[in-house]
Design a binder for these strands. Structure first.
Length: 364
DNA sequence: ATTCCACCGGAATAGCGGGATA
DNA sequence: TATCCCGCTATTCCGGTGGAAT
């Protein structure tokens, strides 16, 4: 049934975009100076998860490169590359200047190399910039005349709040492109497009796509995830086409698959914490720490646990209620789904996580 | 009202790992 | 091989805060 699995991946960039023409035009207009050897102002893409920000950025830049192949494009997901060093390194990677770079390379060597590589313009797409911990990296990049910035984040206010003054004032100018949630019809059109490219004709009905779009409530990433999961289920069953039952079964998959993948990415100590919280349903910090220390041979400090916990909250695995004394932790998405059906064949790597990150929690 | 104290999270510091260099 | 260097994680130290206890 599945003709082309790549199309069903979240990070697939379609050759034609559906329903985002205005946004594409805005972005490509703002990048236009690149065609005349000038540097554009930074561009900002704002909007919630799964509305196509990343996709449109990639699409627009690939279009631009067709016109102006000398432009180098670096895509950096700040969820994973959250230090100054790693961001700079990623940019160097995009222009193949990483040879001989290592951890002990002097501090400014990376920056120097980037500065030297000014023979052609570089566009840096920084996805999830609000996750960047060293915002000074933005200042660095802005100082480089041949580097243009495309910054992707959820909300403008929060993003600018995380900047320090220097960065904030430099980046105040720039083009803002706001993305809104997809309507059901738009989402159906997007899914139909993917289905027609990725599946045998007639595998899925319009009504079924509508069901999926409804369940995804405006989030294309979730919708595509459901579609993929449904197609895989049908494939395994050896069905000619996707049945309504399969669609229904696939809906919970999309959320739980993401969560499972994230949990798998946790390092052992984090997972123990997660297990304790999940088993308890709701637990106070003191009890949580105590239980953790009982289960683990060589416990980490409480302070470290707090770091783990905030990270897990960030990844949407757990929730923290209350700020200080009297806080409790609880798992997110509590009970439900457990029919487990992991059809994630190897080599599958999650596309970029949304604001609710999907992968790469461990950083060791 | 006042004092306690459990808990959070920022900042500084130590220690680890691993490529480079001599 | 021994040593240097540096990014990164965990740890130490600590100030702040607000609910609980008095």
């Amino acid at each position: 049934m599945i003709v082309d699995g790549r199309v069903l991946r979240e990070d697939f960039v379609p050759s034609e975009v559906v329903h985002r023409h205005d946004e594409v035009n805005l972005l490509s207009e703002s990048l236009e100076p690149l065609l005349y050897d000038r540097r554009p102002d930074p561009a900002f893409l704002f909007g919630p998860t799964g509305v196509g920000k990343t996709c449109i950025a990639r699409y627009t830049l690939s279009q631009l490169r067709e016109q102006e192949p000398s432009v180098a494009v670096a895509y950096v997901n700040c969820w994973q590359e959250y230090t100054r060093f790693r961001v700079l390194y990623s940019l160097l990677e995009s222009i193949d200047r990483t040879v001989g770079v290592h951890r002990s390379t002097p501090k400014d060597e990376l920056f120097g190399r980037l500065a030297d590589a000014d023979d052609r313009p570089i566009v840096a797409i920084l996805d999830e910039v609000d996750q960047l911990e060293e915002t000074a990296a933005l200042y660095d990049l802005h100082r480089l005349g041949h580097v243009s910035l495309v910054l992707i984040a959820n909300r403008e206010e929060e993003l600018f709040a995380s900047f320090d003054d220097r960065v904030r004032s430099r980046l105040r100018a720039g083009t803002r492109v706001q993305f809104d949630r997809y309507g059901t019809d738009e989402l159906v059109a997007i899914l139909a497009e993917r289905a027609s490219q990725g599946l045998e004709p007639g595998s899925i009905t319009e009504d079924q796509l509508r069901t999926i779009a409804d369940a995804a409530s405006g989030d294309a990433r979730v919708g595509i995830g459901i579609l993929r999961s449904a197609a895989r289920r049908a494939d395994r069953n050896g069905d000619e086409s996707i049945t309504d039952e399969v669609v229904a079964a696939a809906i919970p998959d999309a959320q739980s698959a993401i969560r499972r993948k994230t949990v798998e990415g946790l390092i052992e100590h984090q997972r123990v914490l997660y297990d304790v919280i999940a088993e308890a349903g709701e637990i106070e910090p003191g009890d949580l720490y105590a239980e953790y220390e009982r289960r683990v041979a060589d416990p980490k400090t409480k302070r470290t646990l707090r770091n783990y916990l905030t990270k897990m909250v960030h990844y949407d695995l757990i929730e923290a209620e209350g700020k200080r004394r009297g806080r409790t932790y609880q798992p997110v998405g509590d009970d439900d789904d457990d029919d487990d059906e992991d059809g994630e064949e190897g080599g599958e790597k999650a596309g970029d996580p949304g604001a609710d990150g999907a992968d790469g929690i461990d950083r060791d």
